[in-house]
């Protein structure tokens, strides 16, 4: 057989195989066309601005005081490892200063709280993490009995993560020494309140509304508290309460919780964030802050209270006392 014939036969073989296999390949791809059809339209009304955007608060207004009181001295406690800084309550402090009142701070270097209280008319304490001594508790109680105003602020315990990826420790830092509050029949519940139904753009930002009419709620329709602890207070002491349906994080029980209370010369609020510059003008917070400023300077504290401890062999009893023990006054 000539080489030419062999070549022809090989060529024929290749052509036949190519035609059959190639044809099969072409036929196989028919029906799996990848021509791009148009992308289907989707309708999502939930993404429309009218459905998606939350209402906004313009956060305007001004903090004003009504009290026409002479210059008073407000002692701010930062000496009990307080979980708060001066800037956190700046709007309240500025309002007091603008209206001619004096602010003084009790620091860790000031060893004697009672001595500092003696020259003050009002005492503001927020998130005391360090325990009060028995003498200090007695001193604050005597201060209050003598007509001194006490503003007690607290917020939920903070959770702090310590360590890192491999070793991690979670610690709860309690913000409140319960002894000081219990002196006045007030306590802070553990956990925070939240409301998923009606809130100010976050479940923890709850609305607090007046429980009745009082000077502390004058001009207040609703206050926004960013992270609030409910208070335990006498029934008639509730000043602000949460909306119905608010839930406590620790128990998951729903209800109306006391978020601000007033008894005797003491006012307590279960939040501190409402006092900072970013929150002070949200909703009616500015009106409430103005009322708190009025409360602080509207007392009539007897001079020299709390009295220093009597020397041994002196008058009976020891520890700080007020000049004349009196029943608690409703104020302001």
């Amino acid at each position: 057989m000539a080489a030419r014939d062999v070549l022809k036969q090989v060529g024929l073989f290749v052509v036949i195989v190519a035609v059959v296999v190639g044809g099969t390949a072409v036929a196989g791809t028919i029906g799996t066309s990848t021509d791009a059809p148009s992308t289907p339209d989707v309708q999502n009304e939930q993404f429309e601005p009218s459905n998606a955007l939350p209402p906004t608060d313009d956060g305007t207004g001004s903090i004003t005081m009504d009290a026409d009181a002479e210059s008073k001295t407000v002692l701010v406690d930062v000496g009990h490892e307080n979980g708060i800084s001066e800037s956190d309550i700046q709007p309240l402090l500025n309002t007091l200063v603008d209206n001619g009142h004096e602010i003084r701070f009790f620091t860790r270097q000031d060893r004697d709280l009672n001595e500092s209280l003696r020259s003050a008319d009002a005492y503001l304490v927020a998130n005391p993490r360090q325990r009060y001594t028995g003498e200090q508790i007695a001193g604050v109680a005597a201060f209050e009995r003598a007509g001194g105003r006490v503003l007690f602020l607290s917020e939920p315990a903070e959770t702090q993560g310590l360590g890192g990826l491999l070793i991690r420790r979670i610690e709860q830092v309690d913000n409140v020494d319960s002894a000081i509050g219990s002196t006045f029949g007030l306590a802070v519940q553990s956990g925070y309140v939240y409301n998923l139904q009606e809130n100010q753009n976050n479940y923890k930002s709850v609305y607090a509304t007046p429980a009745g009419s009082s000077d502390l709620t004058d001009g207040v329709d609703r206050v926004v508290l960013r992270e609030a602890s409910p208070l335990v207070a006498p029934d008639d002491a509730t000043t602000l309460q949460s909306l119905d349906g608010t839930t406590l994080s620790t128990t998951r029980n729903g209800g109306e919780y006391t978020l601000a209370a007033h008894t005797g010369n003491v006012t307590a609020v279960g939040d501190t964030d409402f006092l900072n510059a970013e929150n002070a003008y949200v909703a009616d917070n500015e009106a409430f802050i103005g009322n708190l400023a009025d409360f602080l300077v509207s007392g009539d504290k007897a001079e020299g209270a709390p009295q220093p401890p009597q020397p041994e062999g002196g008058a009976p009893g020891s520890g700080p006392t007020g000049p004349t023990p009196q029943p608690p006054q409703r104020a302001p």
């Binding site: 390949a25 036929a27 196989g28 799996t32």
Partner: peptide
Amino acid sequence: VVWEETSG
């Protein structure tokens, strides 16, 4: 084989 590969 080719059919399997091309048509699936």
